[in-house]
Amino acid sequence: MLKVSNLNKNFNGVTALKEFSFEMKENEILGMIGPNGAGKTTFFNVLSGFIKPESDKLEFLGKDITNLSSHKIVSSGISRTFQDLRLIRQISVIDNVLLSFNHQTGENFYNILFKQKSWQETEELDKHKALKLLEYAGIKDKAFDLANDLSYGQQKLLSITCCLAADAKLLLLDEPIAGINPEMREKILRIISELPSKGKSAIIIEHDMDFIERICDRVIFMDMGEKISEGTSEEVRNDPKVIEAYLE
């Protein structure tokens, strides 16, 4: 489904990604691990169109997405969350989800002025869908609170819900469970593990090895912008090159 070949990225001479390539099948959960500064988040930034790579090719669902702008990449089916947790905090929880639905009739200027009934009807349908998603995430009772009033864990749940609302086929989750309590962690774990049954895949950056082992079909270990090792979590953990990288 996703094919990454020979990705390179330098920041003023510092190598962030070097000849980085891998392939991903449909309905797969892929873990991405490695020390800080290994290039994991840079890879997410490149894949989601926030920064442009230098020489490379990114292919998603048979289409070349290398030089697309970020909103086009999302509409081709890739959506992401952020390590530093981004949401629109001044609007309600449900508005965050509604914002994430693409193709809204209520955003067309002509409809806004002359077809209020028509967009309000579709908005009602969207609200219904949004509430279902929030129910699935277990934060439906907070739907009409400000996003800022959610706990940190709930905000992480909401950011994943927004990815689902953006109708992504591939979710890029940057540290989805960092800094949250065990109960929330189980909730997020359940949502991610159910993704393949909904025809979705995910790439997860996480430092929690236990979490990675429980959830990922395959793991890539990165260091200094390069892929050092790839395989099941056990294979990667026992790979001498990985051990060496950590000992250095």
Partner: peptide
């Protein structure tokens, strides 16, 4: 008034608050 109360208004306010998030959920800012 119609604009600010519509989903387009919501999009505008969201752009004001956090462009990066709005981009990440696929909106053309």
């Amino acid at each position: 008034n119609r604009i600010v109360k519509s989903p387009f208004g919501r999009l505008l306010k969201s752009i004001r608050e956090d462009e990066v998030f709005v981009k990440a959920v696929g909106r053309d800012i």
